[in-house]
Amino acid sequence: MLEVAALRAGYGPIEVLRGVDLAVGPGEIVALLGSNGAGKSTLNNNVSGLYRPFGGSIRFEGEEITGASSMHIVKAGLVQVPEGRRVFPNLSVRDNLELGSYRRGKPHRAANLERVLEIFPRLRERLTQSAGTLSGGEQQMLAIGRGLMGEPRLLILDEPSLGLSPLLVEEMFGLIGRLNRQGLAILLVEQNVVQSLALAHRAYVLENGRIALSGSAADLARDPDLRRSYLGH
């Protein structure tokens, strides 16, 4: 579905990603793990078309999307729920969700809105409230809901558990599993190694702009190097 090959990317003269290969297949949850500064968000933002890569290739469903605009990539069905939510604070919850189908999924806007509100009943209660007044957890729900409004074929979730209480983190991972069981492919970008590996089918570990480890999530969970670096034992 998504194939990233030898991707090099960064900002100005600084190269952050130095040849990354990564793939997500249909129906998979793939976890992308790594500490702060490893290049996870750089990877996302290049895949989503916010930045133009230095080199390498990104293909989505067989189509070359390297350097394509974010409009084109959303239109193709690759939707990112960004780190820090990036909801529209001055717009109501409803308007935020409706804008999720600005480029894609507009014909089914009403039905999708109903579906998102069933997944997140909290958002239904807050429908007319402006998004800036929501709590962090609610904003995260809104960001995911807005992403779902675009009828994604592949959803990139960048640190969905960041800043949430442990209980909400549980809920969030439960939700990601449910969305996936409905057939949605997910690239889960996380620092939360244990829970991500428990949920994902496969995983990649990004270190200093390169893939340091990759394999099935079960194998990686037993990997002694990974355990030492991220779990401390």
Partner: peptide, 23 residues
């Protein structure tokens, strides 16, 4: 209108706007 909402969205959150495919 969608364009009106997009204008207000871009005013406060350009990156988020790009990620929903707003030009």
């Amino acid at each position: 209108s969608d364009m009106g909402k997009a204008i207000r969205a871009v005013a406060k959150e350009r990156q988020g706007a790009r990620l929903v495919g707003i030009d």
